[in-house]
C-alpha cells in the first residue's frame, strides 16, 4: 500500500482490509486527520462522512472537505464491494456478530451495519440487505488509566473492585482496556503487583479479538473469553483461569450481576463498567442493584466528556473501604 508511512499501524490494517477504490479516497483523510479519525460512515446514495475528534468531514476525490457538494456519494457497487471486503466474502461465518449489528475487523476495528434486518421468532437473525456501514476505529490508547490508578491500588498490591461509570462515548472502554493492560503488567511505581486478569469480553471491544486472537495489547497475564455471555464467561474464568481480577464491560442484566457477585465471593476483584452520567444514575438501575447492595465495589470512577472523552470527574471510595 502506497504512502502509509505516517499512519498508525491499526489504521494501516483497516485500509488494507477495505476495497482499493475506498482506500484511495480515505488515505488522504487519514493522512490529514491522523489519529483523530474516529468513525467512517458509508451509506448507499449518501455522502461518505468521516467523524474526527475535531468534527465531521466529507470525503472528496481531492481529499477531505467540509463542502457537501464536493462529497463522494457511495453507490450500490461501493456498498457491495465493502460488504464483500469486511466479511472476507463469508457472511455466513459472521452471522453471530451480524445479528448483533456489526462485523469485527483485524486490528480491533468494528463495522456497524444498517439495512434491512431479517427476523425469526421476533429476534434479529441477520441482514437481508446491508446498505450502510459505520466503521468505528479502534484507538488503543496507552496510559489513560494512569491518572486513576493510584486511587485503585490496594495496600497489598492488588486492586479494589471498581465500577467505571460513564455516558456513551466518554471513554470507559478505553479506560478498561488500559486498566487490563496495566494490571496484567503491574505498575511498581503505583505499588501494583502484576495481576492475572480474566477478561469477559462479550462484545469484543476490550480485546478487539479477530478470529479469537486479541488485537489489542492486554499485557502478558490477560486471559480473554471473547463473545460469550458474561454470566458464562465470568464463571468459566473464575473456575478455570484462577484470576486475581475479572474485568468485563457493561453489566446489563441481573444474571450478569449475579455472575459478577459469584466471582467476588470467590475472592476475585471485579472491574466493570456501567452507562450513566453520575453514580446516582447507576444506583437506579435494577441490573446493578445486587452488586451495589452487597457493597461489591470499593471504588467508583466517574468519567465524562467535559474536557474531551476520558475526562475523570472523580474517583469515589465506597463500600466501606477508604
Amino acid at each position: 500500500m502506497e504512502k502509509t508511512m505516517s499512519l498508525h499501524p491499526l489504521q494501516i490494517l483497516l485500509l488494507e482490509k477495505i476495497p482499493p477504490r475506498l482506500r484511495h479516497l480515505l488515505l488522504p483523510v487519514f493522512e490529514a486527520a491522523g489519529d483523530r479519525v474516529q468513525e467512517i460512515r458509508i451509506c448507499q446514495d449518501k455522502p461518505i462522512l468521516v467523524q474526527t475528534a475535531a468534527g465531521e468531514l466529507y470525503v472528496s476525490p481531492a481529499g477531505p472537505t467540509d463542502r457537501l457538494e464536493e462529497a463522494v456519494i457511495a453507490d450500490a457497487g461501493t456498498v457491495k464491494e465493502l460488504l464483500d471486503a469486511v466479511t472476507s466474502s463469508s457472511v455466513y461465518a459472521l452471522q453471530d456478530a451480524m445479528k448483533e449489528g456489526y462485523v469485527p475487523l483485524p486490528g480491533g476495528h468494528r463495522v456497524g451495519l444498517c439495512g434491512e434486518a431479517r427476523t425469526e421468532g421476533g429476534r434479529v437473525a441477520g441482514f437481508r440487505h446491508v446498505t450502510g456501514f459505520n466503521i468505528r476505529l479502534n484507538r488503543d490508547l496507552s496510559g489513560v488509566a494512569r491518572p486513576v490508578l493510584r486511587r485503585l491500588v490496594r495496600p497489598d498490591g492488588g486492586i479494589w473492585s471498581t465500577l467505571v461509570v460513564s455516558p456513551p462515548g466518554a471513554g470507559k472502554t478505553t479506560l478498561l482496556r488500559d486498566l487490563i493492560r496495566t494490571l496484567s503488567r503491574g505498575a511498581p511505581e503505583y505499588g501494583l503487583k502484576p495481576q492475572r486478569v480474566g477478561v469477559a469480553d462479550e462484545r469484543g471491544e476490550l480485546a478487539g479479538a479477530f478470529r479469537g486472537v486479541a488485537q489489542n495489547d492486554l499485557g502478558p497475564r490477560a486471559d480473554v473469553i471473547d463473545r460469550c455471555p458474561k454470566r458464562f464467561a465470568l464463571a468459566m474464568l473464575v473456575r478455570t483461569m484462577s484470576p486475581d481480577v475479572v474485568v468485563t464491560d457493561e453489566i446489563g442484566h441481573p444474571e450478569d450481576a449475579e455472575a459478577a457477585l459469584d466471582a467476588v465471593t470467590a475472592g476475585v476483584a471485579l472491574v466493570c463498567s456501567a452507562h450513566g452520567a453520575t453514580l446516582a444514575d447507576v444506583k437506579r438501575r435494577p441490573s446493578l442493584r445486587p452488586l451495589l447492595e452487597h457493597e461489591v465495589f470499593q471504588r467508583v470512577v466517574v468519567l465524562s466528556k467535559r474536557e474531551g472523552p476520558g475526562t475523570v470527574e472523580r474517583v469515589v471510595p465506597c463500600g466501606g473501604a477508604a
Binding site: T87, S89, S90, V91, Y92, Q95, A125
Partner: peptide
Amino acid sequence: VLGLSEGGDQ
C-alpha cells in the same frame, strides 16, 4: 452469490 449470504441460503 457465494459467501454473501447466511448459511442456509449458501
